[in-house]
Nucleic acid binder design. Structure first.
Lengths: 203, 203
DNA sequence: GCAAGCAATGAACCACGGTTCACCACTTGT
DNA sequence: ACAAGTGGTGAACCGTGGTTCATTGCTTGC
């Protein structure tokens, strides 16, 4: 058999695949899911349309992988903020909210796509997973707060889901308008602290 | 000129138009925006495809009008709950949350379409208006609470937006699963009361 | 009745965008 | 250098679904 895939070739293939993934991510970040046309992604990645299908079985798979990679990164950032052992409970919650919201405000279109924009079922699964991942990170922290008595008793999962929704919705306005609005973040932090039942949440 | 539109004919036209609107609403309520195909709406209304275009210039206009009519109804229900002059502030907030969430849980697919499902720009405008209308109803009540000293100082608009998002998100799970879950509503009420800073929110 | 319009019809048209595939260029092992 | 096989190409294909329009069947005023 006069052909065997060389490490150098494999590296080039991997790079190309990663390039397509990056192009799709950038395309979504700029034009949303609706504007993420395979031909446009290919052009952006500097390859032909057909090449995309040499690396991904279908558009849905490509997008699912994009979502998965972005979500992994975002959830990791928030989880890291939640895990930070220093500081009071209030400081930790503040860090989580600011991380979540701050990152979203830096990449509005992408955040919108992840939070709200409709897609096909295959990708919706990923989005669901995304929100669940965030919810679970927050729910864990809430449950711990309840256990240690820093927070009043509550349904941690529901509270966490509501918080994810609250932050997401509160951001949609600012995301839609181009107005970051410095007041948004502190107000969201206050809202979150109060909603969780932190005593003395009066900034 | 041997033809003039008679009142009876006008009535039939109006009824037909209303029927198409109702069919589109029902179609969205059952299959969401994605499943709302013009041909299906027409079949459901008992007319031919082309007839739809005799009453609406384009699909986007039809859908926009559907959204507007549903939203008007929903916002009115919530506004009515908010306006109810009897009872304490806590009771009023409870009524608003239960009205909002309770109605959504009764028509899950429709609620999902209104809250989250992606559509084309023309309709997105309506959805934005929808969320803003709810937000404003709540914001008004919050502002009043702040003014009378029943609530701590806060950015009423942002708080209200966050509440809309919180309720919406907390409902998405139950909406997706078929599980109404009797615990959801009370938990949401508690969350809302705490988030607003109502003193003594410990059910 | 009958001419003049209007509303309804639904098959045909068309644009869009995902997917395919016959072809070309290049790499590898001998 | 060459045979065997791989990766890249992009024009063409195809399904979907919104929109149109020539035709048909009613209504109205005379």
């Amino acid at each position: 058999m006069p052909y065997r895939r060389t490490p150098a070739v494999q590296a080039r293939l991997d790079a190309l695949r990663a390039g397509i993934l990056a192009a799709a991510t950038a395309q979504i970040a700029e034009h949303g899911y609706a504007g993420c046309i395979v031909a446009a992604v290919a052009r952006r990645a500097g390859v032909a349309t057909g090449t995309v299908y040499r690396h991904f079985p279908a558009k849905a798979d490509l997008l699912a992988e994009v979502f998965r990679s972005v979500v992994t990164r975002e959830v990791a950032a928030v989880a890291e903020a939640a895990r930070r052992p220093t500081g009071t409970l209030t400081e930790r919650i503040t860090a989580v909210v600011e991380t979540f919201a701050g990152r979203a405000l830096k990449a509005p279109r992408l955040a919108y796509a992840l939070l709200a924009e409709p897609v096909d079922p295959a990708v919706d699964t990923e989005r669901l997973a995304f929100r669940e991942a965030f919810r679970d990170v927050i729910a864990t922290a809430v449950a711990e707060g309840v256990r240690t008595g820093h927070l009043p008793p509550q349904n941690a999962r529901l509270t966490a889901a509501a918080l994810v929704g609250a932050i997401g919705e509160a951001l949609v306005g600012p995301l839609a308008a181009g107005t970051p609005d410095v007041d948004t973040l502190p107000a969201l932090v206050t809202f979150s602290l109060r909603a969780l039942g932190v005593p003395d949440a009066h900034p």
